[in-house]
Design a binder for these strands. Sequence first.
DNA 1: GTCTATACGGAGATAGAC
DNA 2: GTCTATCTCCGTATAGAC
Lengths: 206, 206
Amino acid sequence: MPTAATPDIRRTRGQITEAADRLFYEQGFGHTSFADVAGAVGISRGNFYHHFKSKDDILAAVIEGRLERTRALLQAWEAQACTPIERLHCFVQMLLDNQPHILAHGCPVGTLCGELAKLDHPALEQANGLLVLFRDWLRQQFEAMGRTAEADALALHLLARAQGVAAVAHALRSEAFVRAEVYELQAWLTAQQASGSSLAGARAST
Amino acid sequence: MPTAATPDIRRTRGQITEAADRLFYEQGFGHTSFADVAGAVGISRGNFYHHFKSKDDILAAVIEGRLERTRALLQAWEAQACTPIERLHCFVQMLLDNQPHILAHGCPVGTLCGELAKLDHPALEQANGLLVLFRDWLRQQFEAMGRTAEADALALHLLARAQGVAAVAHALRSEAFVRAEVYELQAWLTAQQASGSSLAGARAST
DNA sequence: GTCTATACGGAGATAGAC
DNA sequence: GTCTATCTCCGTATAGAC
């Protein structure tokens, strides 16, 4: 019968995914080696074949962990903000809260999806789940605001705006630019709440 | 005295940069090896150390070539469109013209700058020159439209919007999304021409 | 002398055997 | 958890072709 000595393996596995998550974000997936991860955790290279059988296996676990944490983040936003517009502001605010990381390493979701898309990596679909998580959640908020017809387009639009801000801020390393664009996005959200929006007109006339 | 037998070396060098340019775009810089480039050109691997002394050397030549072609592109836009608003539409139209490539490999400028930024590669600054080229040109158009005070902010904003569209379209591989966002951008440009813009207000109140 | 091709060595990465 | 095998890649050294 199994003893109670199993938490160790889960702990080590968690440490590996955690370290890999951070390194994948800071250096990119392709430029992070087993040695990097092993060194960060403090175990030997061969050791974590007990936990993961390939690099892609680690990637899958990392993405799964990010999906989990993103779901928790979205739930936290729902808990701390009651109205749809407030929740949408939580999303935009994220750009300011994570500004130092964005300037240094870009958006965690965008840079990962971008890299995997360029490599035509099988895990792209899984990573896109992160984008879809935000997309669906944003869509729900726009629906709750009464923008049912254009909710999905608005969600994608906002998602792309945030991605663009992160991408340019990352390349140019400009803090001021992030602040200015967040201001723009907040104003845009307010305009959306007031409703007579450009996207509504665009969608209606198509 | 040198004979007229020198065009060969320039031709080979051009072939290498051309092939490297394409492969860097399709596969990313980090995931393209010398063997890939050599194979594409049809020469042996050791051979092009006569032309470039390192991989970073090739990267520098590729970026230089892209800068050159970007300048030519901007000049062509100026030639084919006389008014600032028409020229800005040229920029937005680029998203539609290059749509298949964007869906498959992302924006050439954005994906390169993103990769180099993540690697903290010395060539990032040079690659950012591509962004700056667009930024300055766009700024000039907004200035010519009479939006002098906010011209640079508007230029960066438009640049980021385009980057966001390309990034999301690349990850999700969605053609419809590009079309919808281009429509939005065209509407936004029209609104900018009419002037009373959100960015003007935002900038004034900061 | 200039360009090109083959061969070789060092480094590092993945994968796996023990 | 150590140790090794195999592979790829960068860079060089060397030698042949025009």
